[in-house]
Design a protein around this nucleic acid. Structure first.
Length: 776
RNA sequence: UCUGGCGUCGUCUAAAGGCAGGACAAGGGACUUUGAAUCCCUGAAUCUAGGUUCGAGUCCUAGCGCCAGAACCA
């Protein structure tokens, strides 16, 4: 906190927990202040919007802290990987606006070094060749609730292991005959530690290295070591790798790799969940393979390629990633947030043009048949404020939108209906005179009369509709996309196939749409069709569009917000309920009174309770931790009342023993004198907590700490100036307090406490503040 | 059941122990030649119960709930 902020109540910009961690590391000089991140996809599928969160995080961090971010392909499974994916991933990352410079890597480039490290592990007795079958390995591993059993091959000699491993590499064995495993702990509660596999035999060509290898390393081994080899400092991954972190550290520690400063550190954050879609590669692959979509770049897919073809911009996606934030909560982000991000961006960059999707003929009866007016219309509305305009031909026969005409208009309808008047966008006001119907009674033509400027003035027209001149319009095809699934979480149900939630209306194709000529003539690729939404030319980024007869094909990126649709549809279709079973936010009332299940205190706790007059809770905490029990006895020996001692031990000291495993830096004597200082009134409880924090750090005598920090401030002559200063610096807060916001008292007290380094007596400060704030 | 992680407006996300804030969504209004955009306003949250503290979303205890983990996948 800077000098400037002292005494002032200001908002500080917040950072996510990863940025905070990095800043701590930089401050402490860990990794010598360097920041090296990496984005490590496996080339076995296309990147999706979830990956973009990770990409923006990793590359963004490198940019912000002057570091670098590597693009590394974690290609350790030759059966799944393919060059097509390597290429698409690079294309997508680049398109998103990130640059890995010369730092393009492949785990497969490290195969030789990884192999050497594996041999090193064997030599140090940390790895062995196991010849159990796949099924046997699974069986020996045990389950979540039962410990595993050691493999009978666990105690092979180093020589035997080395020999076998080399022969594995040489191709002497069939797939599955042997594996190399880390020797850790078959009984570990974290199952990842039950002798995880390091190498397996796979006689399968690798997409880059061909048949050079027939043994391939597994993720837990290859990933951390690749990070280590590249000098990565901060290895960010998603939550599901939390259980793998001990392995990450374990391999790195035994790798023989050296690091400048410190080994890379793995930190996990929540992956992105988006409503109304699926994100797992397996499910996306299924959508593609079973042809529920046209391919990985189908505009309905949440893939980067799909979003690109849909008309999303890199800016919109990066903005979305920023708004979503980074945290550890399992989250499901509302699809509306992504739509908001893309509208926000497109609104600024898209020229407005007119296009009628479902044409209805409109004849202006009092307009000469041969006349053509060249109206001028700006490409952008005034609030966007960009230059540019085009000519818009107007004539007797126009196309208007079918849904802009109603024979019997609902309440609030501002468009055309018999006798009603509307304005034609950028043009004139018309009044509907009559309609022409076909044999079935459908309206096939609307006839209207042009109002003179004076009439138009009088009419007070509320609605404006879009139109195009029939003789000049360009016919085109328009794809309107909607969410791919009908429910927010299509993959939430265990016993329901996510495909059963597919939205049958996710693609609506309109042919014979009528576009104003300038849009086609000037080759616009990303536009707003006024009153419809944002559209882009299909495959504007290369490749041939799925053209119907060589026409222009437009993809709807996102519709405009439509508050009329909301009103007119009204309560007819309620939002489908979220199906997340018993989700995190369900309030669990009634769970309160369930003490029957509460663990009852053990014998030791009961004894403590009886002997020292402690509460059950205090007794439970203190008896559960030997260091606390010992302190309690010693404290009593030093004459501290058991009640006071227990309070300190069960709350403040317990917090410490929870995170500090070893010997405490202080003993009962120091604690006793600290408690004594509070009891005698020398120290407020508030200051005592600060002193305790120091004590825990250094073990220095409390009296000395107090002397160094300065003692408590309770004299009015010392407090009043600070109180007045705080009030003077926050006039707005003072008036808000006086207006009735009494919660602000805490903030004022906090400011005084901060200004005095915690030394003020908060009770006296509160009294003084109340006095001052009551006055005048 | 064990291990690890996580519980803050409907959703996402903030608050060195000191104003529960912001964004999206929702509702209302102003403006409007896009029922758009913009602007303004409103409603809306600390999982529960105890404890420590002048003061708890934050610290301690117990409970409840959700997620991940038993691939020779990553």
């Amino acid at each position: 906190m800077s000098e400037l902020d002292a005494h002032t109540l200001t908002q500080v910009e917040s950072k996510d927990f990863i940025r905070e961690l990095i800043e701590r590391d930089r401050a402490s000089g860990k990794h010598q202040g360097r920041v090296v991140t990496r984005f490590p996809p496996e080339p076995n599928g296309y990147l999706h919007i979830g990956h973009s969160k990770s990409i923006c995080l990793n590359f963004g961090l490198a940019e912000e802290y002057g570091g670098r971010c590597h693009l590394r392909f974690d290609d350790t499974n030759p059966a799944a990987e393919d060059l097509e994916y390597v290429e698409s991933i690079q294309r997508d990352v680049r398109w998103l606006g990130f640059d890995w410079g010369e730092h393009l890597y492949f785990a497969s480039d490290y195969y030789e070094r990884l192999y050497q490290i594996a041999e090193r592990l064997i030599r140090s007795g940390d790895a062995y060749v196991c010849s159990l079958s796949e099924a046997e390995i699974r069986e020996y591993r045990g389950t979540i609730s039962e410990p595993g059993r050691p493999s009978p091959y666990r105690d092979r000699t180093v020589e035997e292991n080395l020999d076998l491993f080399r022969r594995m590499k040489a191709g002497e064995f069939a797939d599955g005959a042997h594996v190399l495993r880390a020797k850790i702990d078959m009984a570990a509660p974290n199952m990842k530690l039950r002798d995880p596999l390091i190498y397996r035999i796979r006689h399968h060509a690798h997409y880059r290295l061909g048949d050079a290898w027939c043994i391939y390393p597994l993720y837990d081994f290859a990933h951390c070591l690749s990070d280590g080899i590249e000098g990565v400092t901060h290895s960010l991954c998603t939550l599901e790798f939390e259980n793998n972190r001990p392995l990450y550290d374990w391999f790195l520690a035994r790798s023989g790799l050296s690091f400048e400063g410190a080994a890379p550190e793995q930190t996990e954050f929540a992956r992105l969940g988006l409503s109304y879609t699926v994100m797992s590669k397996r499910k996306l692959l299924r959508l593609v393979q079973e042809k529920h979509v046209s391919g990985w770049d189908d505009p309905r897919m949440p893939t980067i390629a799909g979003l690109r073809r849909r008309g999303y911009t890199p800016e919109a996606i990066r903005n979305f990633a920023r708004r979503v934030g980074v945290a550890k909560n399992n989250s499901l982000v509302d699809f509306a947030l992504l739509e908001h991000a893309v509208r926000e961006d497109l609104s600024q960059r898209s020229p407005r043009v007119l296009c009628v999707l479902q044409p209805l003929k409109l004849t202006i009866t009092n307009y000469p048949a041969e006349k053509v007016e060249e109206l001028t219309a700006p490409y952008f509305p005034p609030d966007v404020g960009k230059p540019g305009s085009r000519a818009l031909p107007f004539s007797r026969e126009l196309w208007i939108e079918q849904e802009d005409f109603e024979l019997t208009p609902p309440k609030g309808f501002r468009r055309l209906s018999p006798g009603a008047s509307v304005r034609l966008r950028y043009a004139h006001v018309i009044t509907c005179e009559s309609v022409v119907k076909d044999a079935d009674g459908n309206v096939v033509e609307v006839q209207a009369r042009l109002a003179s400027p004076e009439e138009a003035e009088r009419l007070e027209v509320k609605g404006t509709i879009h139109w195009v001149s029939a003789a000049h319009a360009v016919s085109c095809t328009v794809h309107c996309y909607d969410r791919l699934f009908q429910v927010p979480e299509p993959d939430a149900g265990e016993d329901v196939d996510f495909l059963s939630y597919l939205n049958p209306q996710s693609l609506e194709t309109f042919t014979g749409c009528q576009l104003e000529p300038a849009a086609a003539r000037e080759g616009l690729t990303q536009v707003q069709f006024e009153r419809h939404g944002y559209f882009c030319l299909d495959r504007a980024w290369g490749e041939e569009p799925e053209a119907a007869s060589g026409e222009l094909v437009w993809n709807r990126t996102v519709p405009l917000k439509d508050s009329w649709a909301r009103v007119s549809r009204g309560a007819m279709e309620a939002e489908p309920p979220r199906r997340r079973a018993g989700q995190a936010n369900v309030r669990n009332e009634g769970s309160a009174q369930a003490p029957s299940k509460a663990a009852s205190p053990g014998a030791a706790a009961l004894a403590l309770q009886a002997l020292h007059g402690l509460t059950e809770q205090e007794a439970r905490v203190i008896s559960a931790e030997p260091r606390l029990g010992k302190l309690l006895v010693q404290l009593e020996g030093l004459g501290t009342s058991p009640k006071l001692a227990a309070r300190w031990l069960a709350n403040d000291v317990a917090a410490l023993t929870k995170v500090e495993a070893g010997e405490l830096k202080f003993g009962a004597a120091e604690l006793a004198s600290l408690i004594q200082l509070v009891e005698s009134g020398t120290l407020t409880r508030r200051l005592a907590k600060d002193v305790f924090a120091e004590l825990a750090q250094s073990g220095e005598a409390p009296e000395q700490i107090v002397e160094r920090l300065g003692g408590q401030l309770s004299g009015d002559e010392e407090l009043i100036p600070v109180v007045d200063q705080v009030l003077a610096k926050n006039p707005e807060h003072v008036s808000r307090y006086r207006a009735g916001n009494l919660n602000l008292m805490g903030a004022f007290v906090g400011q005084v406490m901060r200004a005095t380094g915690g030394r003020a007596n908060p009770q006296r400060v509160t009294e003084l503040l109340e006095q001052r704030l009551k006055a005048d």
